[in-house]
């Protein structure tokens, strides 16, 4: 087990390194630079700025410098937001996104799993078709549509909820709901189909024959097996949700990591792009490792190699 985890972590480090390298060269292939858009500065000042951040050196040398700094834990300073380090930006923005994202993940699990089970247990009845209609619509409607409709009806029309920022718990409701819409719908579908699959298995019939109550057979035997596909889905979903959705953050003006990431690409803030990409890839890869470990805990039949 420990050997397996170590091996996976080593592989994860390799993946992160490859992603970082690719991003570095791709990013530099794109025309334009961080200081080109500032018309106010003279060419000399621009050259001085580039020299200060080492952008005048050959690309490969820049790459080597960056990698050796990054390995030592130094991700550099932001090129655009003067005087702020990339680690500082990430550690100030990530908690904001993670709070909203964490609530959204919790909400989608708490709503998605029970409703999916409910649909599977009442297969073919009115409620089942009602739930599948809702989940199909949830998958089809883009997040920006949900955000804006929520904002219009709840925020502007009915004035029930505040629309901007994250000052109180009330501010969390709309971003969390719109962020959890798609995963909830997806988990509902996944849960329904996998539970239906499990309920058809022989061991469920055996529990019935033994006289186990329906409640016990569902919670002790069926759910544990049916929840595996949901766990697979939660890994990458959690990574994306925790690091912030650009659309939700833009619409509700939340100062999170998602907005920072897209903003940095637009302004060619190289160090911030690199820092956030590596951060995102790290979370992504570790989520996948975590999923495999949870898998093993939930289903002892699975052998980790």
């Amino acid at each position: 087990m420990i050997k397996y985890i170590l091996k996976r972590l080593l592989l994860a480090a390799v993946t992160i390194f490859v992603v970082g390298t690719l991003t570095f060269f791709l990013m530099n292939m794109v025309p334009g630079g961080p200081f080109l858009s500032e018309k106010a500065i003279s060419p000399q000042a621009q050259a001085a700025l580039e020299a200060k951040y080492g952008l005048d050196k050959p690309l490969f040398q820049q790459y080597l410098t960056y990698i050796s700094d990054a390995v030592h834990g130094d991700f550099g300073e932001s090129l655009k937001q003067r005087g702020r380090t990339v680690s500082g930006i990430i550690s100030s923005k990530f908690p904001v996104s993670a709070r909203v994202g964490g609530c959204a993940i919790l909400l989608s699990l708490l709503v998605g799993i029970p409703l999916g089970c409910f649909a599977a247990l009442h297969r073919g009845k009115v409620l089942d078709s009602f739930i599948s209609v809702i989940s199909t619509c949830g998958i089809a409607v883009p997040s920006f549509v949900i955000c804006t409709l929520l904002m219009y009806f709840l925020g502007l029309r009915l004035k029930l909820l505040p629309t901007l920022g994250l000052a109180s718990w009330k501010h969390y409701i709309m971003p969390v709901v719109s962020l959890s819409f798609y995963p909830t719908a997806y988990i509902m579908r996944l849960m329904r189909s996998s539970l239906l699959d499990v309920l058809g298995q022989d061991y469920i019939r055996t529990t019935k024959a033994k006289g186990v109550s329906q409640f016990m057979s569902l919670f002790k035997h069926a759910l544990r097996n049916a929840v595996l596909p949901v766990i697979t889905y939660i890994g990458p979903m959690a990574a994306y949700t925790l690091t912030g959705s650009f659309v939700v953050e833009k619409i509700f003006t939340i100062p999170g990591l998602g907005g920072e990431f897209v903003g940095s690409i637009g302004s060619r803030d190289y160090t911030v792009i690199m820092g956030t990409t590596i951060f995102l890839a790290t979370i992504m890869v570790f989520m996948n490792v975590a999923v495999d470990i949870v898998y093993k805990l939930v289903d002892p039949r699975i052998k980790l190699k």
Binding site: V18, V19, I265, L280
Partner: peptide, 21 residues
């Protein structure tokens, strides 16, 4: 696999800037 792991929004934005010229 490598194309899969890079965040797709980053690739989209970078490529669409790169292709413009």
């Amino acid at each position: 696999d490598i194309i899969y792991t890079i965040p797709d929004i980053l690739l989209i934005v970078l490529l669409s800037f790169a292709l413009k010229a």
